[in-house]
């Protein structure tokens, strides 16, 4: 799994909600409101994910851990 895979998956997901969703809203009185909600939700959530993703792309420093935590990490996570 490269850098691109999550990028593409999440982007497509939110693009679908924000881009395709508005066209699927049934035609009734609140159509405009629901469309606005879909687009804004997609924009907000995507931006939020993107910021969190990109800021970890090239970390400039690493986490400093207690040795005990490191031992636990080695045992539990690898």
């Amino acid at each position: 799994m490269g850098i691109e895979v999550p990028m593409i998956v999440v982007t497509l997901f939110w693009a679908a909600i924000g881009g395709l969703g508005p066209f699927l809203v049934p035609r009734n009185t609140d159509r405009g409101l629901v469309r606005t909600m879909l687009v804004l939700t997609a924009v907000c959530c995507y931006m939020f994910w993107l910021v969190a993703y990109l800021c970890q792309l090239n970390p400039l420093f690493g986490p400093r851990m207690d040795a005990k935590v490191l031992i636990a990490m080695q045992r539990e996570w690898s």
């Binding site: 799994m1 850098i3 691109e4 895979v5 999440v10 792309l57 090239n58 970390p59 986490p63 207690d66």
Partner: peptide, 18 residues
């Protein structure tokens, strides 16, 4: 305490935590 090295300890090839 150990500070991890972003070059040596980070599995950057697979991208960051998704």
């Amino acid at each position: 305490a150990f500070q991890m090295d972003p070059i040596l300890d980070y599995r950057n090839t697979s991208g960051p935590y998704p």
